[in-house]
């Protein structure tokens, strides 16, 4: 009896540990929305999302420039990271000799482990300077600089998930293709990659989620100018940068403070949708394979 009781007690405690993540998510949602929804008593949702002007001193809060900047930076990062990442994943899954793999895999893990603020520092000193001087731009602090640094940061995500799904493609597909007289590359391009496409897509969506939510690497290189960017060489200010830069200035309980949390809601929703889509996609890919 006593043993039964103590086991039940332990099970209860461990159960609480297990649902802790979910409790935190609920708390995040509650506190983010409690503060953020307040903003919509000053600005209606449509004006907030589509408004061009963000001026805390006039209490005008339109986030369009930040949203567009976030999209720009992310699209740029994906354009750069997907080809390099996918090809590296194919290399690891299909071509790499074991010895080379033993070097490349830990290197990619390390790339994922470098703190984002260090990426920012590197981006500011190397990439921004390169864009300004070599590409002869008025300012190097640009969407492009942000895209490049984000691309490097999301490479590990794209590579490791894509590689996993490429490895899960049944060996029989490859053998079947080779037995029909296909070259190795033809088998990769026409059979293996298409068969892994759902996992690859999931990795890209996850990469988008990481890129759009990244703060420190971006804030140091994009210039932080509150206007709608029209080209990759323009400066911009993504959602994350605004939150970081303006939290310190906003008085708790002011419309400005609530509006920053509203930006947080926006960001949170975008990233959560992307993550859930990616998870569903990954699950589906696994079931079919």
């Amino acid at each position: 009896m006593v043993r039964r009781l103590s086991e039940d007690m332990v099970k209860g405690i461990l159960g609480i540990c297990a649902i802790f993540s979910i409790i935190i998510i609920f708390l995040i949602i509650i506190f983010l929305f409690r503060e953020g929804l307040e903003a919509f008593s000053y600005t209606n949702v449509i004006d907030f999302v589509l408004g061009r002007e963000w001026n805390p001193s006039k209490e005008t809060f339109g986030a369009a420039a930040f949203i567009v900047s976030s999209l720009f930076v992310t699209v740029g990062a994906i354009i750069i990271a997907v080809p390099v990442g996918l090809l590296t994943a194919i290399f690891l899954a299909e071509l790499s000799p074991q010895r080379v793999r033993e070097v490349v895999k830990p290197a990619i893990e390390l790339l994922a482990g470098i703190p984002s603020v260090i990426y920012g520092l590197f981006g500011l000193i190397v990439i921004v300077k390169y864009i300004r001087i070599t590409l002869d731009q008025p300012t190097g602090e640009s969407i492009l600089a942000g895209s490049i640094i984000l691309a490097i940061m999301i490479l590990p995500t794209i590579i490791s998930i894509s590689e996993d799904s490429l490895r899960q493609v049944p060996r029989a597909y490859k053998e079947g293709s080779l037995a029909l007289g296909a070259t190795h590359w033809e088998s990769i391009a026409r059979i293996i990659v298409p068969s892994a496409s759902s996992g690859i897509l999931a990795s890209i969506i996850l990469g988008v989620g990481r890129a759009i939510g990244e703060t420190m690497a971006v804030v140091l290189v994009v210039g932080n100018v509150e206007k709608l960017p029209t080209s990759f060489f323009d400066s911009g200010e993504p959602l994350t940068s605004t939150i970081l830069l303006e939290m310190g200035e906003a008085a708790v309980g002011s419309p400005h403070y609530y509006s920053i949390f509203a930006l947080g809601i926006l960001l949170f929703l975008i990233v959560m949708v992307l993550n859930i889509v990616s998870n569903v996609w990954l699950g589906r890919g696994l079931k079919r394979g």
């Binding site: 993540s21 708390l27 995040i28 984002s116 996850l206 939510g213 939150i243 960001l267 949170f268 992307l274």
Partner: peptide, 16 residues
């Protein structure tokens, strides 16, 4: 839940 929490951007953790 754990995977979702893992995907929350760090700046959101800051706000929270």
């Amino acid at each position: 839940g754990a995977d979702t929490l893992n995907g929350v951007p760090s700046i959101i953790f800051g706000l929270f």
